[in-house]
Amino acid sequence: MFGYITVNRPELKVKESAAYDAYYCGLCHALHGRHGRAGQLTLTYDMTFLVILLNGVYEHPLHEKTGRCLVHPMKQHTERWNDFSSYCADMNVLLAYYNLLDDWQDERKISRYAAAQLLSKQYEAIKAKYPRQHKAVADYMKALARCEKKHSDNVEEAACLTGKMLAEVFVCREDAWSSDLRQMGFFLGKFIYLMDAYEDVEKDEKSGNYNPLIKMKDDENFDSECQSMLMMQMAECCKAFERLPIIQDVGILRNILYSGVWAKFASVYNKRNKAGENE
């Protein structure tokens, strides 16, 4: 995934900030423990969000440990994890594996292929353990390739495909909360796809990659149109979020959903507009 689903750090309380880091390190720890160094390299903020979200819904017992790690050997830090860290670590590897294969097919980067090979054994195990999620991701990659090939000019098409895929990843089991979690995953997936398209629109135009936003790129209101589309997705995502009975870490989750997700949009927008002024 793309790391868009992250916190707005200055707006977090000190305690929340420390807790967020502990979940992040906990996920890193779970990735290492379950999938080795190659797995650890796939760590994302997006999945850290899912750990905190699922833990907020189900409140399973958390484990905590303070120590040092290979990535930051100089600094003591706290790791916080539970079974949702394991679930999200598996989902992270599943998504990363397909991402690497996709990059290999698109750009023929041998390093991507090699990295995917390193994860292939892990991938087989995850595929067997989570058939529903695996099918969602595998079907998504195929459907997205078809959509890209026919150069669909409907913005919704690829975005909804991404949404349907992430919806399944957000549901770790079917129960009273799965419909709201699905709705959250669906609209967050759409947000991620559109945000990525917005960020890459110039790059994709040059390289000839499919990007449904290219056709409206030179519109006077391009940025505001994009922002409005992105905001609609977040509004629907948050409606589902607010229905869930989440108390634990709700401040962190709201910080991400109402604020953190906009950090990338703001930085892309500012960069683009500064570049325009200098011309």
């Binding site: 409005s228 977040m234 509004a235 629907e236 604020s259």
Partner: peptide
């Protein structure tokens, strides 16, 4: 939905962009 979302966003420091 957009209005409701923005009202919530304001209390969480949603970044503003001058469009």
């Amino acid at each position: 939905g957009g209005q409701w979302y923005q009202d919530m966003g304001q209390s969480y420091g949603m970044p503003t962009i001058n469009v």
